[in-house]
């Protein structure tokens, strides 16, 4: 064993140079010529920069709400609730979210509320929602913003991301993008939404 130790240390050092230094630097170099220079996909709007893939917390009635989050959408951390659906406290928590949603969206029937709208994601940063979770929020948005429902549906249509290559995976909508569009549209229509 002793004969192996010094060579093992040296081999570790040199293979670290290859795998821990050269390998990531090749990727770092490629990142510089990629769309966002390896900073993640960014979107700019109204003078601010957002991460397209990092979901945000929407609490105001005039915005489409995102999913509940175990980390309040603060991406300094990440994580899910890790609760089991056999846990009575968990079920009580979901029940409270449903009640809150139905109070703020009186036109919606309980059976129309998709489970993803009242359950927390794994990352706590899920940027997406299903189409049906957003459609049921349209009457609320329409009332608060004073916009026609038809126009809001059009925004939803425009923002909907089809399955990958039209074939694989779920259809979804990036809630941040939709809300940015909503703000822009309100502005175009001259309808001011007081935050």
């Amino acid at each position: 064993m002793r004969a192996h130790i010094i060579p093992a240390i040296k081999l570790s050092l040199y293979s670290f140079l290859l795998l821990g230094v050269i390998y990531p630097f090749i990727i770092l170099a490629i990142a510089q010529i990629s769309p966002n220079q390896g900073k993640g996909l960014l979107i700019e709007s109204g003078g601010r920069t957002y991460y397209k893939n990092i979901g945000q917390n929407f609490t105001l009635d005039g915005y489409f709400w995102s999913r509940p989050s175990a980390v309040d959408y603060n991406a300094a951390g990440s994580g899910g609730s890790n609760l089991s659906s056999s846990n009575p406290e968990y079920i009580a928590g979901v029940k409270a979210r449903i009640d809150n949603f139905l109070t703020k969206n009186p036109d919606v029937e309980l059976g129309e509320v998709p489970s993803e709208l009242v359950t927390a994601s794994g990352s706590g940063l899920d940027p997406h929602l299903s189409v049906s979770s957003l459609v049921i929020q349209v009457p609320r948005i329409s009332k608060v913003r004073g916009l026609a429902e038809k126009d809001i549906f059009e925004l939803i249509d425009k923002t909907t991301e089809k399955p990958l290559w039209g074939l694989f995976g779920p259809e979804k909508i990036n809630v941040l993008e939709l809300n940015i569009r909503l703000d822009q549209f309100s502005k175009e229509k001259g309808v001011r939404y007081a935050k």
Binding site: L83, V113, S115, D126, G169
Partner: peptide
């Protein structure tokens, strides 16, 4: 609870993955 669960068991899951 009476929810629409057509998306499956979504607690702890991501919408883009399903």
């Amino acid at each position: 609870l009476g929810l629409n669960q057509s998306g499956g068991a979504m607690e702890g899951k991501e919408v883009r993955i399903g």
